[in-house]
Simulated scan of single mutants.
Amino acid sequence: MSTGVAWAVLLLGLSLWGREIADGPGGASAPTTGDIAAVGRPLGAPLPPAHRPMNPAEPRRVEIPSLGIAAPVVGRGLDGTGAVDPPPFEMPRTVGWFRTGTHPGAAGAALFVGHVDTATRPAVFYALSSARPGATVKVTRTDGSIAVFTIDDVQVFSRENFDARKVYGRRQADRAELRLITCGGTFDRATGTYTANVVVSAYLTGTAKA
C-alpha cells in the first residue's frame, strides 16, 4: 500500500468485507460463481505485459465496457466502526474509492467498492461477478489521464474464508493494481447480509488521455 497505510489498519478496517459492505435488504440477487471460485482466462489468450506505474492522481470515473459499467468515483474513508464507508444507498450507481490507500494507476493495489443492489433494483456492481480475465477496466483520473487495467483474476470469497492479505495485498511488487469489490453469494434475510464477496483483480497495462 502507498501513503503509509499499515497492514494493521487494513486488517482492522478493510476486514469489514468479511462482514458486509452493502447491508441493505438485497432486493436483487447477485450473480456469482460460488462461495470460493476463480475464473480462468480462455486457453491461448495470454494477458498483456504490465505497464510501469503512473504518478498518483485521484480517480473520477470507472468504466468496464464488457459489463456495461460506467460510473463516477468518489473518495471514501472509514466509518465509525473502522470499516470502509461505501457510497450511500442514495447513490447506487456510484463507486467508492478508498482514498487513504493507493491511487489507481500508481504502484500498489487501489481499492474500489460498490453496491450490488438496493431494495428495489440492481446497483453499480451488479454484473461484477460476470467479469472475465482479459477484460479492460478504464479509470479516468484528475490529471487528465486514463489508467487502463486488464482483469487477471475473478474470485468469490465466503465470509468465513475471506483473506485480507490475499485480497488487498499487491500481487507483484513492481505493478500498479486494482481491486473491485462487491457483495456476492446469497442474501441471508436472517442476518441482512450477503454470504460472500466478489473480488475482481486487475493490473495496469496502458495509459491514454481523457
Rank of each mutant, 00 (worst) to 15 (best):
G4W: 02
W7D: 14
A8E: 13
A8D: 15
L10G: 01
G13Y: 07
G18S: 15
G18P: 02
E20T: 15
E20I: 12
A22S: 15
D23Y: 11
G24F: 13
P25D: 14
G27Y: 11
A28N: 07
T32E: 06
G34H: 06
D35Q: 11
A37E: 11
V39E: 03
V39G: 06
G40K: 11
P42E: 07
A45K: 14
L47R: 07
P49N: 07
P49D: 13
P49E: 14
H51Q: 12
R52L: 10
M54A: 04
A57T: 00
E58V: 07
R61H: 13
V62C: 07
I64K: 00
G68L: 04
P72F: 00
P72Y: 04
G77R: 12
D79E: 04
G80F: 09
A83S: 13
V84T: 02
D85H: 10
D85V: 00
D85F: 04
P86A: 06
P88R: 06
P88I: 08
P88H: 09
F89M: 13
F89T: 14
E90L: 12
T94W: 01
V95L: 05
W97V: 03
G101I: 07
G101A: 05
H103C: 12
H103V: 06
A109C: 15
A110G: 09
L111A: 12
V113K: 00
V113W: 05
G114N: 04
H115Y: 09
D117I: 01
T118I: 07
R121W: 04
F125E: 09
F125Y: 14
L128W: 08
S130C: 11
S130Q: 15
P133M: 10
P133E: 08
V139A: 08
V139N: 03
R141S: 00
T142N: 03
G144A: 08
S145P: 00
I146M: 09
I146A: 13
A147G: 06
V148E: 12
V148M: 07
I151A: 10
D153F: 09
Q155Y: 08
V156K: 01
F157S: 08
S158Q: 02
R159V: 08
R159Q: 14
F162D: 10
A164I: 12
R165G: 08
V167G: 10
V167K: 07
Y168A: 00
R170E: 10
R171G: 01
Q172E: 15
A173C: 05
D174A: 13
R175C: 02
E177D: 10
E177Q: 13
L178E: 05
R179K: 09
I181E: 02
T182M: 09
G185I: 07
T186A: 10
F187Q: 10
D188I: 08
D188P: 04
A190C: 05
G192C: 06
A202W: 06
T205H: 09
G206E: 02
A208T: 05
